[in-house]
Design a protein around this nucleic acid. Structure first.
Lengths: 196, 196
DNA sequence: TAAGCTACCAAGCAAGCGCTTGGTTTGGCA
DNA sequence: TGCCAAACCAAGCGCTTGCTTGGTAGCTTA
């Protein structure tokens, strides 16, 4: 059914199925409104059996987030490596992030953004360290473009604006609509490099 | 303490004080993690007394959202009316929205964005109708700019991207920092009209 | 001064929550 | 065949939650 994580090797294990189901439910109803009984029911086991695989409900949330950050950081790295020019890298980064956020890992990514504060401070810090690697890939590419004079504003701020643009997409983008992901990527890239 | 709503006339009533306290707590901890006991304690009454003013916890959330939408729609209307050129209107709209979202009504606006799904479908629909008026003000201005050839992409999509850019600001913008709200507004406007 | 209203308190109920416990099934391997 | 660990069940504990109830203090109006 929901193969939201789509990370090879984990989806056929009980743990992997639990993570996928949890990501789906967390995105649908939010972490707090999802009960362990909901998660258990959606994979067909009893609620107590969940704690054989995870020691707390919050641990499930963290596991979802960790997996999706790792997976999408790898994707971002490949995107950068496949392009040589900073312009090409920017477009590849935007496409990769859109793919993460409204494509194959949409559910887990949305959970990452919207349920962040449901993590304990400890786990927030741990996740933030993983996230920092992801962000650095963006900043490197944006700094290169900035030095070339492609845009004048602070690359750090531009990255924040890009985060907002892509992060909001799940709330309106329709994968079945006429606007493709690549179209949208181009439109977003234009917000940085201009309409030329 | 928290005068987050800052709408004249409501803040000195018990109801108004409850709404301000609720907005503050909802933003801090989220709707689900805020208990009616939390809200009651922060205005110094017993938890049961809340239900003399609101008939349910969800009603409090809806009241916060309704007030802030109305207040900021008025602000947006004034912003548009004060400018004659579409370019001027766009800048005024961006400034007004940033003011809403990281300025005087920051707490309630953040709640509006992040706790949306905690509303019942009925109340979501009601709030959406109010929100539609707000959005139309944006689309009118963006359509005018589009017809003038200021940007080439779909005004509807541009509005979505703008929503993301401003809506994400609470997560990073620091009002005490060196970047002012007007600075940020200019940077965002440049994402639409170009760097020229 | 008596009625009436707003605002509140003190106490607690019913339901749902995360999680624990002790025991049972299942499949792979010696 | 006998064994073991992984996976799961059935039951329920202790706690928190939103909300209800019945009553009271204090101000306003006639």
């Amino acid at each position: 059914m929901a193969e939201s994580l789509a990370i090879n090797g984990i989806d056929d294990s009980p743990r992997g199925r639990l993570l996928s189901a949890a990501a789906h439910l967390f995105r649908d109803k939010g972490f707090d409104r999802t009960t362990v009984r909901d998660i258990a029911a959606s994979v067909g086991i009893q609620s107590g059996s969940i704690f054989h695989h995870f020691k707390s409900k919050e641990d499930i949330l963290y596991a979802v987030m960790e997996e999706v950050i790792q997976f999408n950081t790898d994707r971002l790295r490949r995107a950068v490596a496949a392009e040589s020019s900073p312009q090409g890298q920017l477009r590849a980064l935007v496409r990769a992030e859109l793919q993460s956020i409204v494509g194959d890992t949409a559910e887990a990514m949305t959970v990452l953004v919207t349920e962040w504060r449901c993590l304990s401070e400890d786990k927030q810090r741990k996740a933030l360290e993983l996230r920092a690697i992801y962000e650095q890939l963006w900043l490197d590419a944006l700094n290169a473009l900035h030095e070339q004079g492609v845009f004048r504003d602070d690359p750090f701020i531009i990255r924040r604006l890009l985060t907002g643009m892509t992060g909001w997409a799940p709330n309106w983008f329709d994968r079945a609509g006429s606007l493709t992901l690549d179209d949208l990527a181009d439109i977003i890239v234009r917000r940085v490099v201009g309409e030329a």
